[in-house]
Design a protein around this nucleic acid. Structure first.
Length: 583
DNA sequence: ATAGGGTTAG
């Protein structure tokens, strides 16, 4: 009887297990804990989770992080929370899972800092790191960008050989992007390892990589470091003009920090830096919106015994006004006058434009008239700015009047004056007059620039004549005028407006192929139009594509369009909307 | 003598 009872009980358990199905039959303890954690994490029952921490293993935590990769915020929260538990410390395995996640979220800084820490504090070797990231690559839905981040982390902590080993290891799998190579090349330049730079550069080319703008920038910088000395057998060394050219180049592509490093190199090399060097850098920082850095350099130059001149003041005043800082600009103007730094043609046009763009139109005209009365206007700029303003505000009559007085004052209308008027006609829908003016202009000036072409292309687009617009676009090329990003931006914008989204995307590809890098305006144009007409997935894909092609997203657009899509998407998929708001 | 600042496109 007793044995019979036992037998019965046992067989009942076995048969129940069978009934529950295969699913549970092979479950390990970890699988059970894993499911329990997922259920409770989904409901954010942290207290229940707390009780489970003694059974947490590294592989379990990695699995949970991967499982929640579509809800990256929750996964990250879990990872941080579990790291604080006294029962648990993160391993390389769980760190890899969170790194993949952070890279997918584009939180590169956070990913880099975890990577750097693991290599420095936990002495994880770059190669081992690569292997573990590869192990978890598939299950974590990772992207190759994670390896760009690893190379970057290596160079950041000074592990030059490590970075190179990582690249070599990944080369076999085709997982090394041009970004990773560029980062490594740039690191070599920072170390002044010019010979090795060229060796690695050759390797990049022989691997069949297509260099992007950044690679060429590095190349130019590398050449600039040695060029002259090598070619002349050290007989000719770079002088201040050489350095200033290079500094200007880096400022104009927005890499002002690099430009300032070159200034330091210049000082180290014993080459005198002058007012032009500082004027270039000050403009570079101001252009990039770092007015504080600009002012810091002003102090630096004064400390070096250099006196800021009109160019320096003009530059800062211009960018202050562009940012809407009227007060800062007017203080600088007073300072300029007080220090007897005399305003010039540039100053007048900067102030005229600044007053207009900040809504002080009456003052702009008043100021302009004062300057004109003193007969100190020598070029067409100020007139052009005002004619432009009038055309933009549909006051074509006023624009023509100002054109007449300009001619009376002995100033010859230039390509920009015509451009503004043509633009005015186009905006008014009077494409015939626009074309007539354009033809007259060719007779008079005999040359056309890219701006005039762009204005006309834009005019054709406004009046819906897209075929004519594209014909001009082609004509431009046959006339030997290089199509610039404005030309592309205009056409991309109108393709979107006409609902040709696929074609807009194609044209962006052509643009990139022709070496014209899309900018934040291309980005904003495409994102805005796509978000109104396409699915969230398409918009996100578009964003990703552009970023991968080196476009720097416009912050406002990203915040208004992309980031809500990402948040909403992952929240909706998992029904966390309400819960996450309460947390 | 060669190097720096102002007008066009969303």
């Amino acid at each position: 009887m007793f044995s019979g009872f036992c037998l019965y009980k046992r067989s009942s358990i076995v048969s129940r297990a069978f009934h529950v199905g295969k699913e549970f039959a092979n479950l390990s303890t970890e699988d059970i804990v894993f499911r329990a954690v997922c259920v409770n994490l989904r409901q954010r029952k942290w207290k229940v989770l707390e009780q489970m921490t003694p059974s947490f293993t590294n592989s379990l935590v990695s699995r949970v992080v991967c499982e929640f990769r579509q809800s990256p915020k929750l996964a990250l929260e879990f990872y941080t929370w579990v790291g604080q538990s006294r029962h648990f410390s993160h391993s390389l395995e769980s760190s890899c899972a969170i790194i993949h996640l952070l890279v997918n979220m584009r939180k590169f800084d956070e990913a880099l800092s975890i990577m750097g820490n693991l290599m420095l504090a936990n002495s994880v070797s770059p190669l081992e790191f690569t292997e573990r990231l590869l192990d978890s690559y598939e299950i974590c839905d990772a992207t190759p960008a994670v390896f760009d981040a690893l190379v970057r982390a290596c160079t950041q902590i000074g592990a030059t050989e490590g970075a190179y080993e990582v690249i070599q290891k990944l080369k076999v799998n085709g997982l090394v992007s041009i970004h990773a190579w560029n980062n490594f090349l740039s690191h070599l330049l920072k170390l002044n390892e010019i010979v090795r730079f060229w060796k690695v550069y050759k390797e990049v080319v022989s691997c069949g990589y297509v260099e992007n703008a950044n690679s060429f920038n590095l190349l130019i910088y590398a050449l600039s470091c040695q060029k002259m000395g090598v070619m002349s057998g050290d007989n000719v060394l770079p002088n201040s003009v050489t350095y200033n050219c290079i500094i200007n180049g880096f400022c104009k592509i927005g890499r002002v920090a690099v430009a300032e490093e070159i200034l330091n190199d210049m000082i180290k090399a014993g080459v005198d830096c002058n007012v032009r060097t500082y004027a270039t850098l000050i403009d570079g920082y101001a252009r990039g919106g770092s007015s504080e850095e600009s002012l810091r350099l002003c102090d630096d130059m004064v400390e070096r015994g250099l006196v800021p001149n009109t160019v320096v003041y003009n530059s800062i005043i211009h960018w202050f006004l562009a940012e809407g800082d009227m007060e800062g600009a007017s203080l600088l103007l007073s300072d300029m006058i007080e220090k007897h730094v005399y305003p010039d043609q540039f100053t007048y046009s900067i102030l005229t434009k600044g007053l207009c763009r900040n809504g002080y139109v009456t003052q702009a005209f008043k100021f302009h008239n004062q300057v004109v009365e003193k007969h100190i206007i020598e070029d067409a700029f100020s007139h052009n700015i005002l004619i432009n303003y009038l055309c933009k505000s549909n006051n074509l009559a006023g624009a023509k009047q100002l054109l007449s007085s300009m001619i009376v004052r002995g100033l010859i209308p230039d390509i920009s004056t015509y451009g503004a008027l043509i633009d005015g006609y186009c905006k008014e829908g009077n494409i015939e007059s626009a074309v007539q003016l354009y033809e007259n202009m060719i007779k008079r000036i005999g040359l056309l620039d890219v701006i005039t072409y762009n204005t006309l292309i834009n005019g054709y687009c406004i009046s819906g004549k897209i075929a004519e617009a594209f014909a001009l676009f082609d004509e431009m090329r046959s006339a030997g005028i290089s199509v610039d990003k404005v030309s592309y931006n205009i056409l991309i914008n109108y393709l979107c407006k006409f609902g040709c989204f696929q074609q807009a995307k194609e044209l962006t590809k052509v643009m990139i192929l022709h070496g014209v890098v899309p900018d934040f305006i291309t980005y904003t144009t495409l994102c805005t139009n796509f978000s109104k007409n396409c699915s969230p997935e398409e918009v996100i894909e578009l964003h990703d594509d552009m970023v991968l092609n080196g476009v720097i997203p416009d912050r406002q657009t990203y915040k208004a369009i992309i980031s809500p899509l990402l948040g909403k998407k992952s929240a909706e998929e998992h029904g966390f909307m309400d819960l996450s708001n309460h947390h």
